[in-house]
Design a protein around this nucleic acid. Structure first.
Length: 770
DNA sequence: CTAGCGTCA
DNA sequence: TATGTGACGCTAG
């Protein structure tokens, strides 16, 4: 475990669970509406007539963090001026903007090269960056043409310069052209939602850094490209590679490898895999039978060091159909992000920086394979350093026992993907679009004319110029920052709601449109052959949780979606949509979901060793339901899931909020430290969930007779499996046992009950009593 | 209270 | 024309 739970036991002992659930909370359970209102009021910083008690501390805190954020920002701004472009994106907060920023800079470069004939310096600068961070000349050159404000090229004429700057600074174009989305886009059939393929880019050529301060060595690595025909010539050499550490790196179709992957984008497909042992480099290409066997042998008989193992595994699985390969892997990328979880390195050069490692020499070569070999030699040295650092920080065990074991599981999830019921998706889309059309017509009727509801400009014109609603309501409309135009944001619409039906309708339209864009069309664009394969990122979250994107299946609404926002008396159309029900199991399979019951609550209880909370957890099978029953003074049977959910929110909010403040008092530490302690509960729980994945997967694999089960989803504390219909009961028992056992595995004194439910689609799962 | 991602203005 | 930005929506605990 990343955090030693027992270590915190003494320090938090004094926290009293009863205090946290004191009478104050009883008085302040707000209705749903009030809760929402409070939130927005607090967020907007407007009148706080109904402020939640004791929020001064919270306010102070949020100010603190704000300040911190600002500080980080300004620091990184300083950095931007000094650093090379691949590093400009290393902002603590916006770590995920990296990719987009890269695309942006790329676009600018392309655009610039249209202005004037491209020189090799420009197109190849990024290559050099990695090799020669210390090279002053190159850094200067790079700073010129990469940062958007400094983007000036000497040769460019003044007029061009102005055009460039105006465009990049986005002086006046920002909202001017906000194109009203044609409705055709909405009604577009899902089948047609095919992702647009960017144009083929020209293959960049590697040019050795000339002004680099790193000495250039004239090395040629012994590199053999193996394919089906010449494999036999090297068989002897390959057979000798056993029980040692080898390095494996993917090479992409454009000639770059994983270690300089800032040149690759979605269009690059893996093209081969280079394996290095001692001084020999073998590049395996193609997917012939012999290649597969040799590669499999090589990987399984050795310890594999790599960078971005997930890509390698998915390459092996999809291109080479090696389904059940499970080599012993050490992934430097994950290791490095373990060292610095708050600010995980984005690419290999970040890793080098993190390890304060710099290359001793570089190679002059035009051959991309040689280049890759050079990078691999760097990786080898980095790994040695990384290993030492992980061991020093006591992270080695976590790395090997949890993260590396998780790797193949996640790769498996990504590979398998989740089946989509296309007909259901289409019918839901139809319902939603019909509803949208109805709202649209009502809008036109209310406005007295046809306009584009999605266009802020047109809405603004109608609301304020034609109907003069702001004057009627006597509300001052906040003005937007850029143009001083009147805002059409939701809060403003809400304040105009009672005066005219139109704002209400616009809000509803936006609501529907967003739901459609996110959960139907947004999902649809990721569907390939009826299967959606999200990317699972092991290193994204600072808390150690796993995140999903493209699409983010962890954020599909659980509650049914109401098509009608403001039910009216005469309105009979109260159809509800379950966005989760479009996810189905394959024929002959069922979905099995296993859910920890309030993990973090239990981790907290264990860490704080709080008798009251422990007792409460032991007494009630469902703590939140019991609490809701108590607070709302209702019989347990009448507690609807919505109320339970709200109670849960409240409990966690007070648990963390009150918990942190109390920690601060008791430990007599400042807010940051107390936050850290609280965050450690988070990561403990995250590790617990990871462990659950590993253990249950292990149990299922080793069970006899074998169980046909595949992990599909991980929603933090919920695991969703796809299990052969014949094995459901057995699999459920194994999963339950494994998951409940993992509490003991890491010394938890609290039992960890697990709820299992099964069903054919994700929307309608029935609890499985067992 | 914390952490993610995606959409929109 | 396409991008960056912060607010807010959803999720999870």
């Amino acid at each position: 475990m990343k955090v030693n739970i027992t270590e915190t036991t003494d320090t938090c002992k004094k926290i009293n669970w009863d205090d946290m659930l004191d009478s104050e909370l009883l008085d302040t359970i707000p209705t749903n509406k009030e809760l929402k209102g409070n939130n927005t009021i607090l967020d907007k910083g407007l009148h706080n007539k109904n402020v939640i008690h004791e929020n001064t501390g919270q306010k102070r805190k949020s100010k603190n963090t704000e300040l911190k954020v600002k500080k980080v920002r300004s620091d990184s701004n300083e950095e931007i001026k000094q650093q090379v472009p691949t590093e400009t994106c290393k902002q603590g907060n916006n770590k995920n903007n990296h990719f987009r920023k890269q695309k942006y800079t790329k676009a600018i470069k392309n655009w610039l090269s249209n202005l004037e004939p491209p020189t090799e310096d420009i197109t190849d600068l990024d290559n050099i960056v990695n090799d020669s961070k210390s090279s002053v000349d190159i850094i200067q050159q790079n700073t010129h043409n990469s940062h958007k404000e400094k983007l000036v090229i000497e040769k460019t004429s003044k007029t061009n310069k102005k055009v460039v700057q105006a465009q990049l600074a986005n002086k006046d174009g920002i909202m001017k052209f906000s194109k009203p989305q044609p409705n055709a886009e909405d009604t577009k059939n899902i089948n047609e939602a095919v992702e647009t393929k960017p144009k083929e880019k020209k293959v960049k050529k590697f040019v050795a850094p000339i002004k680099s301060q790193i000495p250039v060595k004239d090395i040629t690595y012994e590199l053999h490209t193996l394919d089906e025909d010449n494999l036999d010539d090297h068989r002897e050499g390959l057979h000798e590679i056993i029980n040692i550490e080898i390095i494996a790196v993917l090479i992409y179709s454009n000639g770059f490898c994983q270690l300089n992957s800032h040149h690759t984008d979605g269009t690059c497909t893996p093209d081969g895999i280079i394996v290095n042992s001692d001084d020999m480099f073998y590049c395996f290409k193609g997917a012939g039978q012999k290649i597969k066997e040799a590669l499999k042998c090589l990987l399984e008989n050795n310890t594999v060091i790599c960078y971005g193992a997930q890509n390698i595994l998915s390459y092996l699985k999809t291109h080479l159909q090696m389904d059940r390969i499970n080599p012993k892997i050490y992934d430097a990328k994950i290791g490095a992000s373990l060292l610095e979880p708050d600010n995980p390195p984005e690419n290999f050069s970040d890793v080098q920086k993190l390890l304060s490692f710099s290359a001793q020499y570089t190679v002059a070569t035009e051959c991309t394979l040689q280049k890759a070999a050079w990078y691999m030699s760097l990786l080898k040295q980095c790994w040695a350093k990384l290993y030492a650092m992980l061991a020093e920080d006591n992270l080695w065990k976590v790395f090997v026992e949890i993260e590396m074991k998780l790797l193949p599981i996640i790769a498996g999830m990504e590979c398998r993907g989740l089946c989509i019921d296309m007909s259901k998706l289409k019918s839901m889309e139809e319902v939603l679009l019909n509803r949208m059309k109805a709202v649209e017509q009502q809008c036109y009727k209310a406005a007295g004319k046809v306009f584009q509801i999605n266009s802020a400009v047109q809405v603004r014109a109608i609301l304020y110029d034609e109907l003069q609603l702001d004057a009627k309501c006597n509300v001052r409309i906040r003005e937007t920052l850029c143009k001083g135009a009147k805002s059409t944001s939701e809060t403003m619409l809400r304040s105009l709601m009672n005066e005219h039906p139109l704002p209400k309708l616009i809000m509803e339209y936006r609501h529907l449109h967003k739901a459609h864009a996110t959960f139907l069309a947004g999902i649809a664009q990721h569907i390939k052959d009826g299967v959606v394969r999200p990317t699972w990122v092991q290193t994204a979250a600072a808390t150690g949780r796993i995140a999903s994107n493209n699409p983010n299946l962890q954020a599909i609404p659980k509650a049914p979606f109401d098509c009608v926002m403001f039910p009216e008396a005469g309105d009979t159309d109260n159809s509800q949509l379950m966005f989760r029900s479009i996810y189905v199991s394959r024929p002959g399979f069922s979905l099995v979901a296993a859910d920890f019951r309030h993990v973090e609550c239990r981790v907290f209880a264990h860490a704080a060793a709080d008798a009251g909370l422990l007792r409460a957890l032991a007494d009630h099978p469902d703590l939140f339901r019991a609490l809701a029953q108590h607070w709302l003074k209702k019989p347990e049977a009448e507690i609807v899931p919505e109320e339970r959910e709200r109670t849960k929110r409240l409990v966690y909010a007070s648990l963390y909020g009150a918990g942190t403040r109390k920690l601060m008092e008791i430990l007599d530490v400042d807010y940051q430290q107390a936050l850290q302690v609280a965050a450690s509960f988070n990561s403990s729980a995250a590790d617990l969930c990871k462990l659950a994945m590993i253990l249950s997967e292990e149990q299922l694999r080793t069970s006899s007779p074998p169980v046909d089960a595949h992990l599909l989803l991980q929603i933090h504390d919920e695991l969703v499996w796809e299990v052969n219909d014949l094995h459901v009961d057995r699999a459920a028992a194994i999963i339950k046992q494994a998951m409940e056992g993992c509490g003991q595995w890491c010394g938890m004194t609290v039992p960890l009950p697990v709820a299992i439910s099964t069903g054919k689609d994700w929307g309608s799962m029935q609890t499985l009593e067992n």
